[in-house]
Amino acid sequence: MGVWDHLTGQPDAIEAFRAASSMAPGNIAMTHSWLITGPPGSGRSNLAYAFAAALLSRGPDDEGATLRQVQARTHPDLAVLSTERVIITIDEVRSLVSASQFSPSVGRYRVVVIEDADRMTERTSNLLLKALEEPPPRTVWLLCAPSEADLIPTIRSRVRSVRLRVPSIADVASLLRDRDGVDPETAERAAREAQSHIGMAHRLATDPDARARRRQTLQTALGIRSVSDAVIAASTLLAVAGDDAKAITLERDAEERESALRSLGIAAGGTVPPALRAQLRALEDDQKRRATRSLRDGIDRILVDLLSLYRDVLLLQLGVAEEPINGAIRGDLETSATASTPASTLRVIDAITTARTRIDGNVAPALALEAMLVAVSRHTAR
């Protein structure tokens, strides 16, 4: 499998990276600092790791093995910084900058990837800036962020930006068919319901439980008829988000713990020596932070699904001839559209947007959801 085969919907970006990776080390046209920007689900990190594999491989025959090492994050010339925290700490970046100074050991380059580079504070960004200003001749930095505006101007001036677009539903469905072996109908539905978010489309296409949780979210909202229904629904949606978060984190947590024990030389089920317990506690603390973030992400996914629901209702009310995102429940959409007005639907959409903003600002999710769903109850009561 070639390094570019698992990507979709970004032909211009792929061509730019393919051309850059084909240049010999030392070519003055090869940029050593890149910024990949694009909306969530556009495949920023996937493209960054594909480019990293192309840079690290020693030729076409080596691409497959190098790509597997990059995907496993085990290539000796690859350094990666991703965080489960709200911000990337200055110590993390300082360690990465130090590692970037080494010459490559087996590949043509040493590649450094920073996912979510927008999570750096200004002080941390200034530390990175010094490394970008004078990078070693065979070190390549790949930064990923939602937009250029999320980074300080001095960093933006020292990187080559590659902007990604939202892939089409057809592109995402094709990827699911070719890469994951999903049947065409399921692939198209997953791509549409995920609104072209590649990672979410993969989950919906391959995980029946994820599809069931999404269906429960929509049915819960459509079943609200009163304020008391809204309060109960808020509790239900929190539980759905919690189940979704656990599905994502539990398996990964177990794999990480098993890997940590193995690296420390501790057999499965064995006693952890006191001297090594601090390392496991640090891992557990990181996993708790990830669980908190995963829950917030799960709540946001629910709100995005609800936005798609009421977007469909509004389009039906306005007579817009466009395929609904949630076409599988078209009958329910038509019933909701008939029972309310476009103005009330817009108020619900505003309430959902407000809930997202409040939760992002650390308002208790239960309170934000209850306030939002009260607006839904008024919508359905009309």
Rank of each mutant, 00 (worst) to 15 (best):
A267T: 14
I198D: 00
D171V: 00
R252P: 02
E251Q: 13
A260T: 12
A381I: 03
T217M: 10
D229E: 11
A212V: 07
P167N: 00
E115D: 15
V140T: 13
A355Y: 05
R281M: 07
S147H: 10
P167C: 00
V313Q: 07
A79L: 15
G43N: 02
T89W: 04
I90K: 13
R281P: 09
S168D: 12
V97F: 02
L369T: 12
R290L: 13
L204A: 01
S100R: 05
I232E: 15
R123K: 11
I299V: 15
D209C: 05
P208F: 07
V112Y: 03
S174M: 09
T89L: 11
S95W: 03
R311S: 04
W141H: 05
E188L: 10
L204C: 03
T354Y: 06
T121H: 04
G269D: 08
E334C: 05
G242Y: 01
T217V: 15
D5L: 07
E323I: 02
I224N: 11
P104V: 11
V166L: 02
P342F: 06
I28T: 13
A233Q: 08
V172M: 00
L369M: 12
R85W: 13
I90S: 06
S228N: 15
T154W: 08
E251K: 14
D332W: 08
R213C: 03
R252Q: 15
D286W: 06
A239W: 06
T186I: 08
G41A: 00
E256S: 08
E255P: 02
R281C: 01
L295P: 13
D305Q: 14
A50K: 04
R215W: 03
G199E: 04
D229G: 07
E322F: 01
S228L: 15
S168W: 02
S294P: 06
L307G: 01
L143P: 01
V80K: 03
L35D: 04
D12I: 11
L264P: 09
Q216I: 13
D116P: 10
L67V: 10
Q216K: 12
T83Y: 12
A230T: 10
T74D: 09
V162K: 04
E185R: 13
V182T: 05
L35I: 03
R296S: 14
R68Y: 12
P76L: 09
S294D: 11
V97L: 06
S100E: 08
D5G: 05
L47C: 08
R163D: 01
L151A: 02
L283V: 06
Y109P: 02
A337L: 05
F51H: 07
L280C: 05
D150Y: 03
T292S: 12
V140C: 11
L264C: 01
R211S: 06
S22F: 00
T66W: 10
Q317F: 08
L55M: 12
S263R: 15
D360W: 07
S57Q: 10
E193T: 00
I28G: 07
G41V: 00
R215Q: 14
D332P: 12
S196R: 04
M372V: 09
S340N: 12
L55Y: 05
Q71P: 09
L314Q: 04
Q219E: 15
T74M: 08
L129E: 03
R301M: 10
I302W: 09
P153Y: 04
